[in-house]
Amino acid sequence: MSKQEWPLYEVFVRSKAGLSHRHAGSVHAPDDQMALDHARDTYTRRSEGVSLWVVRSDSIVASDPAETSAFFEPAKDKIYRHPTFYEIPDGVKNL
């Protein structure tokens, strides 16, 4: 860690049971435990959360935006992965 500053952490908040965690922003903290404290004070002080995740920013692996079309688009062509592609025969329930 450089002498200059505390590492950067990304913060994810689950605001209500049943929802997913959403990215809320980032905080600087010297370590994981303090990162949780700082995230709580910054992003949930109006009680906006039931669960917090903090991750060091440099631990996040991201897709490359330049590769977006190769990475994501093929799935758009393969419509047979979507349930609506198939017609359900009459009389069959619960599908």
Binding site: W6, H28, A29, D37, H38, D41, T42, R45
Partner: peptide, 11 residues
């Protein structure tokens, strides 16, 4: 000493 601590102190 740091911005995050400002929030904690005020809280």
């Amino acid at each position: 000493p740091e911005l995050e601590e400002e929030l904690a102190n005020a809280n």
